[in-house]
């Protein structure tokens, strides 16, 4: 099917994800879905729509607002042979149940010497959407910092299903970060199609996608910032600056090869991150590249959310969020300096 006529282009990422989940649940009866409002409502962002109607309350369960209990329940159920897909409505809520994620799910395979595995997926919505400091974070680096969790973040709606299939089929706990703006974005309006023509094919975790080629700098990023960076790249192209944009797709495992080989070619790396600046993904990617390419003395820069809680009012929110203009400015500084 050619991209232009693919009806999936009319669907947003939440619709694409719910279809992928539905298909995978049809194939694998070990999959159960838990979370707040995942049943009748189909998820506050719609990513579990139709699932309860198709599979019943036995497999698709609204939970009470008890994140500690239902994430812990998912850990036990995974160890007992099921494959829970848990929705944490907003990633910001991880504060009330992190223990079960980082002390139990993430560690049990290692602590058991490989005797147990915890194949669960924690799906959660991230990113700025006008909901202020407690409902707008990304927190990808928080999870990526903790050993034992895979961390996946689609950068375009078309990659959502393939990445989700890999996450569900993985034997390890996977934190699946869904940007709210991507959940609402129709695949056809995205700045790159991703795997929209191969939605039933799992996308291996740890495989970045070079979504734009260019020789002047590498922009490495993930999530909604991929779309923003591509927009910035087209602005830069008008100025004669060609940016290569690498969509990491997963932070853990990290595709070091694609990252460093691109940075080696361009000699410049800009990391764009909607998560906080300090101790974050931007510093980590730059460290990886500098350690690997120190002989080439790569020039590096980071553009991330400043270290402030995210404000509510639109002008204030826009002042902290990386956007195509600020990304292009950061890229120009790096290239022209």
């Amino acid at each position: 099917m050619s991209t232009a006529t693919n009806p999936a282009l009319q669907l947003n990422m939440s619709q694409l994800l719910s279809r992928a989940l539905e298909a995978e649940m049809g194939r694998d009866d070990r999959i159960v879905v838990f979370g707040e409002d995942v049943g009748g409502l189909g998820g506050v962002f719609g990513a579990t729509r139709n699932l309860q109607r198709r599979f019943g309350e036995r497999r698709v369960r609204d939970t009470p607002i008890s994140e500690m209990a239902f994430t812990g329940l998912a850990v036990g159920a995974a160890q007992a042979g099921l494959r829970p897909v848990v929705e944490l409505m907003f990633v910001d809520f991880i504060g009330v149940c992190l223990d079960q994620v980082y002390n139990q799910a993430a560690k049990n395979a290692y602590m058991s010497g490989g005797a147990v595995s915890v194949p669960l997926v924690l799906r959660t919505a991230v990113g700025l959407i006008g909901a202020a400091a407690q409902h707008s974070q990304v927190l990808s680096a928080t999870f990526a910092h903790l050993p034992g969790l895979k961390v996946v973040m689609p950068g375009t709606p078309g990659d959502g299903p393939g990445l989700l299939l890999s996450a569900i089929r993985d034997e390890n706990p996977v934190v699946f970060l869904e940007h709210k703006l991507l959940l609402k974005q129709r695949a056809g309006t995205a700045r790159h199609p991703g795997a929209i023509d191969a939605l039933d094919q799992p996308i291996p975790l740890g495989q970045a996608a070079t979504v734009r080629s260019g020789g002047d700098l590498t922009i490495a990023t993930a999530g909604w910032a991929v779309q923003q960076s591509l927009e910035a790249a087209s602005v830069l192209a008008d100025d004669g600056i060609e940016a290569e944009v690498v969509d990491l797709r997963s932070l853990v495992p990290l595709d070091r090869e694609t990252l460093t080989s691109s940075a080696a070619r361009t000699g410049r790396l800009l990391v764009v991150d909607e998560d906080y600046l300090s101790y974050g993904m931007s510093g980590e990617l730059i460290a990886v590249v500098c350690e690997e390419l120190w002989e080439h003395r790569p020039r590096v820069a980071r553009h991330a959310l400043p270290d402030v809680p995210i404000p509510a009012s639109r002008p204030l929110e826009e002042a902290v969020m990386p956007n195509p203009r600020t990304i292009a400015e950061a890229a120009r500084r790096l290239v022209l300096a």
Binding site: R58, A69, G76, P84, Q100, N103
Partner: peptide
């Protein structure tokens, strides 16, 4: 299994119970 975090055993046990129930 057991866990060193006080109280964390309780929800995990629910998961083992759920798997049997399911």
């Amino acid at each position: 299994m057991c866990t060193g975090i006080v109280g964390a055993s309780v929800p995990i046990a629910l998961g083992y119970a759920f798997a049997r129930h399911y």
